Simulated assay, not measured.
Amino acid sequence: MRSETAPQGIDGSRAARKDEHVDLALGQQGDAGRNEFDDLDFVHQALDGVDAERVDLGVGIAFGAGPQHAAGRWRWETPFYVNGMTGGTERTTRINRELAIAARETGLPMACGSVSVALDEPDAARGFSVIREENPDGFVMANLGVGRPASDAPRAVELLGANALQVHVNAVQETAMPEGSRDFSSWIASIEQLAAASPVPVIVKEVGFGLSRSALRHLSEIGVGIADVGGRGGTDFLKIENARRPAGEYAMLAGFGQSALASLLDAPQGAPALLASGGVRSPFDVVKALAAGAQAVGVAGAFLAAIGRDGEPGGAERLVALVNDWKLRTRAVYALLGAATRDDLLATDLILRGRLREFCADRGVDLSALALRSEAPRP
């Protein structure tokens, strides 16, 4: 599909790449099949269910103190949110508008795609500021890539009137990207500097390849209070960037990284507050991530597909209907599992299979303890 003309003043190749990413990401939605969410099962407790009317879908995102803020807690009314996707072109402005309207109407927190283009080329700012215009009272997350100057953090927050700042890390994507950087040596220092400069809490987010135990320890050590483990299994940015190469020579890395569930179950004690995304296809996947330790779950591809390829009017209404359906079904699964709250899900018994089980076993995760959590004393 032809990319739209960039707004005047925006670098055409950069705009074309953003629109191309949308097309390639949507193209992957038709390929969505089995992933590691299918490798996690709950032990069915036939007599432990609760009344769905008693279920509270709200979640508290508790995070530690950072360089610029005290320890805190956000209260979100749903356990899932609109994760960062796009922005900066005429087409993606329409997409962000529809996403923002749906977030406003359903109470979902919402992140945007990287605002770097708007900081470099002010004509692109409308593609992001529309989010706050359409959702003046909602919880909004700005987004920057690691490696940006520390001074960009407050600028990104100001652009959206943001409540939080996502800093995304994407070494695998950069490796395959034709115009990507391959110097990752300063990334920890960059995250620390961006977090110190940000006037709001920072969420470090992988773009689809997982955050390891070591990575989460590094983030905790530099004072990052929140991390989105962003695992393998959803929108595949390695595949997207490799498709932009005539020879496709980075197909050799297919399947690289960890899933969201693997990252959650492998997380160390003392890790930042954990969010999860990557491969979330349904409310059941949301519940699985919450049971594995996520405090909330980000959704991108499934919501983008509801909005539509070009963000035309009507996309918001379709997404509102989908989100309301997800809320209904999430509540039903909570009740089935005997969970009145997200915290109750942490006492459900989990059985791991396949690649997820192999990963966790090799990493020393106690599989028996996961399978017998309902019998452990509650704190």
Rank of each mutant, 00 (worst) to 15 (best):
A162I: 11
T106W: 02
V229W: 00
Q295F: 01
A215R: 00
L290C: 08
F359P: 01
L211A: 08
G72W: 02
H218W: 14
R331Q: 13
V117N: 00
I191P: 13
D123P: 14
E249R: 14
L26R: 14
A124M: 05
R75V: 10
D344P: 09
T5C: 05
E36C: 04
A291P: 08
Q29S: 14
L159C: 03
L165S: 07
R309H: 11
L356P: 00
V287N: 04
T78L: 13
F139H: 13
G308F: 05
A262R: 01
V287C: 10
A271N: 04
E134W: 12
L219K: 03
A215F: 01
E206C: 07
P7C: 02
L336T: 14
E358R: 15
L165D: 10
A142F: 05
G279A: 06
N35F: 08
D343Y: 06
V365D: 01
R148V: 14
Q295G: 09
D183G: 04
I226A: 01
L238A: 07
V297W: 05
A340V: 11
R353N: 11
L144T: 06
P283N: 07
Q173V: 08
A300E: 07
R378F: 05
V146T: 10
A321E: 15
D349E: 08
S116F: 14
F284N: 12
E36R: 01
A371W: 03
A316G: 00
L337K: 08
H218Y: 12
L264P: 06
I203G: 07
V146M: 02
W76V: 11
A15L: 05
A273Y: 02
R75T: 14
A335T: 09
A302Y: 09
S259Q: 01
P109D: 07
D285Q: 03
G145D: 09
A306D: 14
T86H: 03
P149T: 10
V365F: 01
P201W: 00
D48L: 12
G30A: 07
G84N: 00
D39H: 04
R353L: 12
L304N: 11
T106L: 06
Q166H: 10
V280E: 13
A6E: 15
S214D: 08
G161I: 15
A195V: 02
L165C: 04
L99R: 04
R155G: 01
A251H: 11
G233D: 05
G257S: 00
A292C: 15
F303E: 10
G301C: 10
R148E: 12
I95T: 04
E90M: 12
L367C: 06
I203E: 03
V333L: 15
A361K: 14
T348L: 09
P122M: 10
D343I: 11
G30I: 13
D120R: 11
L144S: 06
V299W: 10
L372M: 13
G233V: 07
A65Q: 10
G210V: 00
P67H: 11
L265Q: 00
R91F: 01
P272L: 00
D48H: 13
A321D: 11
Q8N: 13
G147T: 04
R148K: 14
L159T: 00
S186P: 10
S214A: 08
I191A: 05
A111T: 07
Q173K: 12
V43Y: 10
L194Y: 03
S151C: 09
Y334C: 11
S259Y: 01
E241Q: 14
V82H: 02
A361P: 02
D11L: 10
